[in-house]
Design a protein around this nucleic acid. Sequence first.
RNA 1: CGGGGCGUGGCUCAGCCUGGUAGAGCGCCUGGUUCGGGACCAGGAGGCCGGAGGUUCGAAUCCUCUCGCCCCGACCA
Length: 480
Amino acid sequence: MAESPITPREKDFATWYQDVVIQGDMAEPAEIVKGCMVIKPNGYAVWEVLQRELDTRFKATGHQNVYLPLLIPESFLTKEAEHVEGFSPELAVVTHAGGKKLEEPYVIRPTSETIVGHFFSKWIQSHRDLPMLLNQWANVIRWELRTRMFLRTTEFLWQEGHTAHSTHEEALEEVIRMLDVYAEVAEDVMAMPVVKGVKTRAEKFAGALRSYSIESMMQNGLALQAGTSHDLGQNFGKAFDVQFQSKEGKLDYVWQTSWGVSTRLIGGLIMTHSDDKGLVLPPKMAHRKVVIVPIFRKDDEKAIVMEAAAKLAKEVGAHIDTREGHSPGAKFFHWERRGVPIVLELGPRDVAAGNIVIKRRDTGTKEVIPQTELAAKVAETLEAMQRDMFSKAKQRLQDNTVVANSIGEVREILDDVTAEKGGGKFVMAHLKDDPANDAAIKEFRASVRNIPLVDEYDGPGKCIITGEEVAQRVVIAKSY
RNA sequence: CGGGGCGUGGCUCAGCCUGGUAGAGCGCCUGGUUCGGGACCAGGAGGCCGGAGGUUCGAAUCCUCUCGCCCCGACCA
């Protein structure tokens, strides 16, 4: 037994997740710093793919990247009342520097709305400066009490978009545009289906008018907020005095948005697709899509096999596992745990027959094919995997979405659901957007995930708590 | 912050109750035989037992304090 086995999902989903992260060589707990993790090469490569996919789309929608300071004067946080209330409990504060106590402490950014507000007020004077469309790739710190690798760590990597507009309409368009970008990356690249919607007032970002989110469903049925896009209204504009002069010569505050996704997405990716054998990556997320495991005994066999392997590897852009001192079996397990989409086996028998063995990670299907067909077969298999993995996840989401018409029913369905045991559902119910109702749902540790932008159900109905007429059903679930 | 668990070679842990020369498996190094789903044999390197104080002739073991990590809840991307 070369490396520790992975706890089956059935037995304990939370432990399974940790095992997959560690065995897949994605990350490990930092241990020396509370709640932090070390993202290892295999995990960081996945983040780099995500960065590339997102960044390309940000640029295509007119955004530019900037970088702002990690430290924020403490007083900045207090300028927006809701914002400070929302973030105060989880701030890490720098009180000493240069061997002296600081006159005014700095907080380590939990997010950058305030510092952006400050600079927007410097940079924006005229309607000609608008819209201002910026994005920042950065790390932030939120002192969470409970952490899980990728899903919630004290320090995490993310991108935060910050934009300023001259009208609310335009800002709203931006909010939805970026939510769509997130949904596209989640579904088309990560093969992770999401539900787009508006957060309830109780669940919105501290300081926003409204927040929008994409919510995905993990294999245990728990919801994961995979991305958010906020309509900040003029709240930060007013707090930081970001005014512009309109065409008509009138002064007005800018309308802002902010939006972000984080390394949490990697957690979502893992919990959407992986299995009891380890990590499973959709082809578009795999930095290493094809690996060849050469098989041979004697030196003359080795020469023949390696020559054929090198030729085929070049043809399909594969990595050859040339490590010595490991049996082929050990190599198969190695790549399987790391989620490589396609593993090719090539031994003397195959070379003699002009064949090669192709195995796909998601289904475990193994096939012997002529080497001449390899390139076509690889391309076709990668495409099929991407498609099938999305379908499978989509099906699971549908199978585990249920309708409920009373609070008792909702509670019945979700009461015993935990991250470890699983059994989670998305429960569609009519509920009025009122913090009191959110609180009632919280009593059994569930929450309103969002109010879907597209109502796929029966339209208006009576709120399961107040009985008032509401426009549509909302998503209620246990979540990470 | 409440509850639980845990700090002993790189990793997983045993030893602690009942104080007396620091152990195992895995990994690592060397050599040989292996190699189509986690190979085997032989030899070898590697630890002031989380930290501080105390009890004792003697502490990984007993006592006090302390630091940290993990898991479960409340908070949250």
